[in-house]
Amino acid sequence: VDNKFNKEQQNAFYEILHLPNLNEEQRNAFIQSLKDDPSQSANLLAEAKKLNDAQA
């Protein structure tokens, strides 16, 4: 993981990586967004979790 991520951002990265119901395309999009703007990690994680739950 890129060293410019802080602890919260790293946690978001790993959580998104391991959400079971996202397809690869969705997962990659969230990860790319996280890399583009790490400050949005909490929002991105919340969105990813919502999508993950919706696809459960």
Score class of each variant (00 low, 15 high):
36 D>C: 14
7 K>C: 11
44 L>A: 02
36 D>R: 15
40 Q>D: 11
39 S>V: 08
18 H>A: 13
31 I>G: 03
21 N>R: 09
36 D>E: 07
15 E>S: 15
1 V>H: 11
32 Q>M: 15
44 L>P: 01
50 K>W: 15
2 D>L: 03
43 N>K: 14
44 L>Q: 05
12 A>V: 11
48 A>R: 00
18 H>V: 06
38 P>N: 02
25 E>T: 04
13 F>V: 08
52 N>Y: 02
25 E>P: 08
3 N>Q: 09
51 L>P: 00
36 D>F: 14
36 D>Y: 08
11 N>W: 15
16 I>V: 06
10 Q>G: 03
27 R>E: 00
38 P>E: 03
42 A>T: 10
36 D>N: 09
25 E>W: 08
50 K>F: 14
4 K>H: 14
29 A>G: 07
47 E>Y: 15
1 V>E: 14
29 A>E: 04
16 I>P: 00
35 K>L: 10
23 N>P: 06
55 Q>H: 06
24 E>H: 10
32 Q>W: 15
38 P>A: 07
54 A>N: 11
50 K>L: 13
55 Q>T: 07
34 L>T: 02
38 P>F: 03
22 L>K: 00
47 E>Q: 13
41 S>K: 02
1 V>P: 11
8 E>R: 01
52 N>V: 03
25 E>C: 13
36 D>A: 15
26 Q>E: 05
56 A>Y: 10
38 P>Y: 02
53 D>N: 12
10 Q>E: 10
36 D>H: 12
50 K>T: 12
41 S>R: 04
30 F>L: 05
17 L>E: 06
3 N>R: 03
44 L>M: 06
39 S>R: 09
36 D>G: 11
49 K>R: 10
35 K>E: 06
40 Q>S: 09
45 L>W: 08
29 A>K: 12
12 A>W: 06
21 N>Y: 12
37 D>L: 08
40 Q>L: 11
36 D>I: 15
34 L>Q: 03
45 L>C: 06
34 L>F: 13
24 E>K: 11
22 L>V: 05
13 F>S: 03
23 N>V: 05
6 N>P: 05
32 Q>A: 13
13 F>G: 02
10 Q>T: 04
35 K>W: 12
37 D>W: 08
1 V>L: 10
10 Q>F: 08
29 A>Q: 07
41 S>W: 15
34 L>Y: 04
53 D>I: 13
5 F>L: 08
14 Y>M: 12
49 K>Y: 15
53 D>F: 15
5 F>P: 12
12 A>G: 02
48 A>D: 00
15 E>V: 15
2 D>W: 01
4 K>M: 14
2 D>Q: 02
2 D>K: 02
14 Y>D: 05
17 L>V: 07
24 E>N: 12
3 N>W: 01
51 L>R: 07
30 F>S: 01
24 E>C: 14
23 N>G: 12
49 K>D: 02
24 E>Q: 10
19 L>V: 01
40 Q>W: 08
24 E>S: 13
52 N>Q: 03
17 L>K: 10
16 I>K: 00
30 F>C: 02
31 I>F: 10
34 L>P: 00
30 F>Q: 00
15 E>F: 14
51 L>W: 11
53 D>S: 12
25 E>K: 09
56 A>C: 14
24 E>L: 09
20 P>I: 07
15 E>D: 05
7 K>R: 05
17 L>R: 11
33 S>V: 08
23 N>Y: 04
8 E>K: 02
5 F>C: 14
56 A>L: 11
29 A>W: 15
49 K>W: 15
14 Y>I: 07
22 L>G: 00
56 A>D: 07
28 N>Y: 14
51 L>S: 05
10 Q>M: 13
56 A>K: 08
13 F>E: 02
55 Q>V: 12
52 N>R: 02
14 Y>P: 01
21 N>C: 13
49 K>A: 07
55 Q>N: 12
9 Q>C: 08
40 Q>I: 10
28 N>E: 10
53 D>H: 14
48 A>H: 00
45 L>P: 00
23 N>R: 11
5 F>I: 10
21 N>I: 02
31 I>P: 00
20 P>A: 06
13 F>W: 11
44 L>I: 08
20 P>Y: 14
33 S>E: 09
10 Q>D: 05
27 R>L: 04
56 A>F: 12
45 L>K: 05
48 A>I: 01
3 N>Y: 01
52 N>T: 02
41 S>F: 15
13 F>L: 08
30 F>A: 03
22 L>Y: 00
6 N>S: 03
45 L>H: 02
38 P>V: 05
9 Q>Y: 09
35 K>G: 07
2 D>E: 05
27 R>K: 05
27 R>P: 00
9 Q>F: 08
31 I>Q: 05
33 S>C: 10
36 D>Q: 12
25 E>H: 12
7 K>L: 04
28 N>K: 12
26 Q>Y: 03
45 L>N: 02
43 N>L: 04
8 E>Y: 02
51 L>N: 04
53 D>G: 11
25 E>R: 13
27 R>A: 05
15 E>Y: 15
37 D>A: 03
26 Q>V: 06
42 A>G: 05
25 E>Q: 13
11 N>S: 13
47 E>A: 13
29 A>H: 05
14 Y>W: 12
37 D>V: 09
54 A>Q: 13
15 E>W: 15
1 V>Q: 07
27 R>I: 07
56 A>M: 13
4 K>D: 14
41 S>Q: 02
48 A>V: 03
20 P>L: 10
34 L>E: 00
28 N>A: 13
11 N>I: 14
33 S>K: 14
27 R>Y: 01
18 H>Q: 08
3 N>T: 09
24 E>G: 10
52 N>K: 02
54 A>W: 13
13 F>A: 07
32 Q>N: 11
4 K>N: 14
34 L>W: 10
44 L>K: 05
2 D>T: 02
46 A>T: 09
13 F>R: 06
42 A>M: 14
35 K>A: 04
18 H>S: 14
27 R>Q: 05
31 I>T: 13
43 N>G: 05
50 K>N: 09
28 N>S: 14
26 Q>L: 02
